[in-house]
């Protein structure tokens, strides 16, 4: 056995294969599948509940699987004049896209300067940026709200975009990536007469694809899912974002589970699509950065 083990893993595996490894393997798969079931059941329950009719939803005992699946609840929330769904969707999209665009621009530009230029006080400034990452949002949210009051930006979508235009984490991440771009490339562009801003747009940005994608996806998901800040800033119904709208059917108008679950399904869907499309980058981004 000992010599077999040293020869090759494949041979060794064959030598070890017997009943016991097979049982262990089966157990592993069983456990992992059970875990998947636990993970998926709440989603299925959500979907099932959203597909129940308004009479089935109040039947006792409740049904496990909808007997006559219907899209009635989705139609109801789409047609409800008190809750302009497309408005909320538009609000969320506008806010998230603006924040992502601004963060990508400011982070890559500042990251570029920090990575490739020498100036007085650079290290101190960068340490300051890192230090602001340690301040929890809950500590600054009260004064931030007061600042927005002074700028007359409360109860407006701008109030959701303006404080989010820069990101300490984004600058940090971009600096790390841009440091990997060879200095020779930048010098060559300079010799060819490129302006400094031209170097940023034509040499640096094109190489930043994956980094920008990673930062963009995380920023998008963070802004799209944000709850506390819109809860504080926005008071008018028409200006709410999707996550705030979600709780509408849960709290104010008597819990309508079918409607609330239909709304939840609608909010989760775009995020899931983004997730499945960009899964590789999301997983890579997390392992690279530890960002949530």
């Amino acid at each position: 056995m000992d010599t077999v083990q040293q020869i090759s893993p494949a041979l060794r595996r064959r030598a070890r294969s017997g009943l016991r490894p097979f049982v262990v393997r089966a157990l592993v798969y069983l456990l992992l599948t059970a875990g998947c079931v636990v993970t998926l059941v709440p989603f299925l329950w959500m979907l099932g509940t959203s597909l129940k009719s308004s009479t089935e939803i109040i039947r006792l005992p409740p049904t496990l699987i909808p007997e006559q699946p219907t899209l009635q609840s989705f139609r109801t929330i789409f047609e409800d004049p008190r809750v302009p769904l497309e408005r909320f969707f538009l609000n969320s999209t506008a806010v998230s896209v603006s924040v992502v665009a601004l963060v990508l621009f400011t982070s890559s530009l500042a990251g570029f300067v920090f990575a490739k230029y020498q100036f007085f006080g650079k290290d101190l400034l960068f340490t300051l940026i890192l230090a602001t990452m340690m301040i929890p949002f809950q500590v600054t949210m009260i004064p931030m709200y007061l600042i927005l009051v002074r700028l007359h930006l409360t109860d407006s979508l701008w109030g959701l975009v303006v404080p989010g235009a820069t990101s300490a984490f984004g600058i940090f991440l971009m600096k790390q990536f841009i440091e990997g771009i060879p200095a020779e490339l930048i010098d060559a562009a300079r010799i060819d007469g490129a302006s400094e801003f031209g170097i940023y747009t034509r040499i640096v940005l094109p190489q930043m694809g994956p980094a920008l994608a990673t930062l963009g996806i995380f920023q998008f998901m963070g802004t799209w899912n944000d709850y506390l800040w819109p809860l504080i800033v926005i008071t008018t119904t028409e200006r709410r974002t999707l996550p705030i709208m979600l709780t509408w059917y849960n709290s104010q108008h008597g819990a309508r589970h079918d409607l609330s679950m239909a709304a939840a399904t609608l909010v989760i869907l775009p995020i899931l699509i983004v997730y499945f499309l960009f899964q590789r980058w999301i997983v890579q981004g997390i392992t690279l950065t530890g960002f949530k």
Partner: peptide, 29 residues
């Protein structure tokens, strides 16, 4: 990995609502 990561990318509000219905004393799962 994809399946186990699903809840993490889901909106927290949606997650809270879904679990609220699961824990519901009369209609809950």
């Amino acid at each position: 990995r994809t399946i186990y990561f699903l809840p993490t990318v889901t909106s927290l509000v949606a997650v809270s609502l879904v679990w609220g219905v699961i824990y519901n004393p009369t209609f809950g799962l």
